[in-house]
């Protein structure tokens, strides 16, 4: 088949060409009314996306190629210098490792806990509303408030966690949770997981209502135990919910900043630095905006890679 189609032989022009030369209609006129309506509705979103996402992104990339203190009118072009400096920066390695821990462990823990809680609350009848309210409540709290409250919980002298451990005879486990570089990041992550499971719980609860009772009963009759019913009957029917929740959690965890900043500001010994907090520290506290921009570009690239891999994996699983 020919790749070029012949023009219709007898297609008359919709309007006679004006005398003195053909005047092409403007781009809007060439659109159908429905397309114009669609363009009108899309335009504000496109403008917003351009102004608040694409242009800042391009500016960040441009800034990352410069050395700049954030206030001086002169920016020095350094090419890929900032990116090369990242390779030798020990704290970049620490913040990258912590970011990966945060995203990987944080997403897995939130997903598992939310699903587990939704399963436990499933079928509790009128009591479900109580559980739903209870588990969703942290979701409506501002992250800063959650950070402050958990800071009190972890307080080495007055915190309820240490007091509780001492009360049950586990005083040897009491410690300064946010002051120990080996565990501080996990302590903050626990607070973040607590704050983020509410929405996941609600989504899983809604999805569980659509799980086929007939299939579950059939599996039970066939002798499947609880774990097998969960693995082979419930989870496949929750696949769309799992995809949605995983996506939301990945986005949420890559954006993590405020909880760490409120609770430890990246300390002690920079042991809780995430790429986002390290970016902020460089750009706004240490006056190295170009280097901070390079860090933010790296974080963006990591987000893109993870997102693409995740979407591809989901598509492949769906096809199977």
């Amino acid at each position: 088949m020919s790749r070029t189609a012949a023009p219709p032989a007898a297609a008359p022009p919709r309007r006679p060409a004006p005398a003195g030369g053909a005047r092409r209609p403007g781009p809007l006129r060439r659109l159908s009314p429905a397309a114009r309506l669609a363009a009108a509705f899309l335009a504000p979103a496109i403008v917003l996306y351009l102004v608040f996402v694409l242009i800042p992104l391009v500016q960040s990339v441009w800034l990352s190629l410069h050395e700049w203190d954030g206030v001086n009118p002169v920016k020095t072009f350094v090419g890929l210098g900032n990116y090369l400096d990242l390779m030798d920066d020990r704290l970049f390695g620490v913040s990258l490792r912590n970011t990966l821990i945060w995203v990987g462990l944080g997403t897995a823990a939130s997903l598992a806990l939310a699903l587990g809680l939704a399963l436990l609350a499933w079928g509790t009848g009128r009591g479900f509303a109580v559980f739903r309210t209870l588990y969703f409540m942290p979701q409506v709290l501002p992250t800063v408030v959650v950070g402050i409250v958990w800071g009190w919980i972890y307080h080495p002298s007055f915190g309820v966690l240490n007091k509780g451990l001492e009360a049950v005879g586990l005083g040897s486990l009491a410690r300064g949770w946010l002051g120990d570089p080996d565990i501080a990041v996990y302590a903050i992550l626990a607070a973040s997981v607590w704050a983020s499971i509410g929405l996941s719980f609600v989504i899983f609860s809604a999805a569980l209502n659509n799980v086929s009772a007939e299939l579950l009963d059939a599996a039970k009759v066939d002798g499947a135990n609880a774990l097998q019913r969960f693995r082979h009957v419930i989870v496949p029917q929750l696949s769309h919910a799992v995809t949605l929740v995983t996506s939301l959690l990945l986005i949420h965890n890559f954006q993590a900043f405020d909880m760490v900043w409120v609770m430890t500001r990246g300390g002690p010994q920079n042991s809780t630095q995430l790429i986002a907090t390290y970016t902020y520290q460089n750009a706004f506290a240490d006056n190295q905006v170009g280097y901070g921009a390079a860090l933010s570009v790296v974080l963006t690239v990591i987000c893109l890679i993870v997102t693409v891999v995740f979407v591809r994996l989901r598509e492949r699983t769906s096809e199977v």
């Binding site: 972890y154 307080h155 080495p156 002298s157 007055f158 410690r175 300064g176 949770w177 946010l178 002051g179 120990d180 570089p181 300390g267 002690p268 010994q269």
Partner: peptide, 15 residues
Amino acid sequence: GENVNALKAQDATDL
């Protein structure tokens, strides 16, 4: 005392 790295300035003041 203990937990020097875990205490913030306000925590020390509170003590």
